[in-house]
């Protein structure tokens, strides 16, 4: 059964921009926030995608055009059948977040897993303290899920950081960590969770460290090449941890030495 994807019907497709589409799929798989699925395109391949909602009757997939599989996925329309297997991974450590203040940071399509967590928080608002959200995008054109962000602005403290402002008055200019540096958020009794490009997560983590948040209070949602998604194929190993099985969400102090080890040995040139 493990390799056998099941068919589901696409309920709705929304084109967000040239590179990104949002697919709504009817399913009762009910993933935990932060878990992911393998989308299967018969004859082409598979690709891991996180669910960006927390809903027992549907999965939302924010998909960025990247390779063969996503190209084929983009051609599907409402009513078409898509094959999915999952959910995989452990997702966000919901138990540890209870009664805490949260800082959520998302960069680009890293928005997807964070969105599922925000959904969960909305449904269980009394379990959490203050919620501060940062989004990082390239420019106003690249802002994803605009309607949802509008809604969240009413409920939480939301900051959108753009690399280039281009006249957008509701947003702030600069990378997330730069904006954070200028107006530091409160970090008492706080846990930070983030997803996005590794460079972004690294600089944000350094800033949070300066603001008094230690590595054990920071969680990264990682991305690596995954093929089997249940810890057999060995692709996603970061030293001794499987991103698919042990992650994709890691406490930063757990993953940091492993990432540093790989990074330093990648820099050393051999013949």
């Amino acid at each position: 059964m493990v390799y056998h994807p099941q068919p589901y019907i696409i309920d709705h497709v929304k084109t967000i921009n040239k590179e990104v589409k949002l697919f709504r799929i009817k399913s009762d798989l009910n993933p935990k926030p932060g878990q992911f699925f393998e989308i299967s395109m018969p004859g082409i391949g598979e690709c891991p995608l996180a669910s960006c909602s927390h809903n027992p009757h549907q999965i939302d997939m924010l998909t960025r055009l990247a390779g063969n599989v996503t190209t084929a996925f983009f051609q599907l329309k409402k009513g078409d059948i898509v094959h999915i297997r999952g959910p995989y991974g452990k997702g966000f450590p919901l138990g540890k977040l209870k009664n805490k203040n949260l800082i959520l940071i998302a960069g680009g399509t890293g928005l997807a897993p964070i969105t599922s967590l925000i959904n969960y928080i909305e449904q269980n608002r009394s379990h959490f303290g203050n919620i501060i959200i940062y989004f990082g995008f390239r420019n106003p054109e690249y802002i994803l899920l605009k309607d949802k962000i509008k809604e969240w602005r009413k409920k939480f403290k939301v900051t959108i950081c753009l690399d280039k402002l281009e006249g957008d008055k509701q947003c702030k200019e600069g990378f997330v960590h730069e904006v954070m540096n200028k107006a530091p958020p409160d970090t008492a009794e706080t846990i930070a969770l983030m997803c996005g490009p590794e460079i972004m997560m690294k600089s944000v983590t350094q800033t949070l460290n300066k603001l008094g948040l230690t590595d054990d209070k920071i969680y990264w949602s990682m991305e690596r090449r995954m093929e089997c998604a249940f810890g057999n194929c060995g692709r996603c190993l970061i030293q001794d941890v499987y991103v698919c099985r042990d992650g994709p969400v890691f406490r930063y102090d757990h993953i940091k030495p492993r990432l540093e080890n790989e990074e330093t040995s990648n820099k050393i040139k051999t013949h």
């Binding site: 390779g67 090449r225 990648n266 050393i268």
Partner: peptide
């Protein structure tokens, strides 16, 4: 083996 869709290989050097 460790190359992702974007083109980056996570274990880029022979040493790693």
């Amino acid at each position: 083996f460790s190359r992702v869709a974007g083109g980056k290989a996570f274990r880029d050097s022979r040493l790693s």
